[in-house]
């Protein structure tokens, strides 16, 4: 049977159409393939990260401290050594009365050994900064931290105003020291613990419990009297 020319042409046209359809489908598929590639890459990176993470976790898993035992260890000897060390450590503790000051909570604890004699609300350093005009000097109004000792005990103290007190008020510090003396602002008692810092009274009792001072420790009148009467020169002060 013979196939006419027209039929052959039609078949070729159909083939052409199929071919262009295939090409079209491939072009449509192409972006899908690209997306898959990104997914594979992401999965690959995530897998790699996971492996590194697992290695990290294994390597840095918390291990307990191992102390090397040297020679023969005797349990009772070790226990005796520990009790001796414990005794030496407790011998470091202050004997008798001492003062604890929590500068954050603005609390003073007057203690005798482990017993609390008095707890008082106080005012500690504000932590502010004062710079002298011209930038020559700078003061940070912090209450110092650490262990201190009462070095002086004063009744009816006068305040000898330091330079910063004048600069803060926008005045020139006077040359004559008599101009620096101010009475009645430090309360009835003052306990000096070095470098110009004092535990003293205050006129601003409503500010007790707040960090408002220039580094000194302000205490209310009644509490100050008890602190003054129960301490002596050499009494330890712990400020934290």
């Amino acid at each position: 049977m013979e196939i006419s020319d027209e039929k052959i042409r039609n078949r070729e046209e159909v083939r052409e159409i199929n071919k262009s359809n295939l090409e079209f489908q491939e072009t449509v598929k192409k972006p899908k393939f690209k997306g898959r590639k990104t997914i594979y890459l992401t999965l690959y990176i995530a897998g790699l990260y996971l492996i590194l993470n697992i290695i990290g976790v294994i390597l840095f898993w918390p291990k307990n401290l191992k102390i090397e035992e040297s020679g023969e260890l005797n349990l009772s000897l070790l226990e005796r050594e520990i009790s001796l060390l414990d005794k030496r450590l407790s011998s470091q503790r202050p004997k008798g009365v001492y003062i604890l000051i929590d500068s954050g909570a603005n609390r003073l604890f007057l203690k005798k050994n482990d017993d609390l004699i008095r707890e008082a609300i106080i005012s500690c350093g504000s932590g502010s900064i004062l710079e002298e005009p011209g930038g020559k000097r700078r003061w940070v109004f912090d209450t110092p931290r650490g262990e201190f000792t009462i070095k002086s005990k004063i009744v009816n103290p006068d305040w000898i105003k330091p330079d910063w007190a004048f600069i803060e008020e926008g005045k020139e510090p006077p040359k004559n020291w008599k101009e620096r003396v101010e009475s009645g602002v430090l309360g009835d008692y003052a306990l000096g613990f070095g470098q110009g810092y004092f535990i003293h009274g205050t006129l601003y009792t409503r500010l007790l419990g707040r960090n408002v001072t220039h580094g000194c420790i302000r205490v209310g009148d009644e509490d100050l009297e008890i602190v003054y009467k129960n301490t002596q020169i050499g009494t330890k002060i712990y400020i934290f």
Partner: peptide
């Protein structure tokens, strides 16, 4: 830390 401006902190309210 807060900076004190000289001459401006005379009242207790400022402290």
């Amino acid at each position: 830390r807060k900076k004190i401006k000289p001459g401006e902190s005379q009242s207790s309210a400022n402290f």
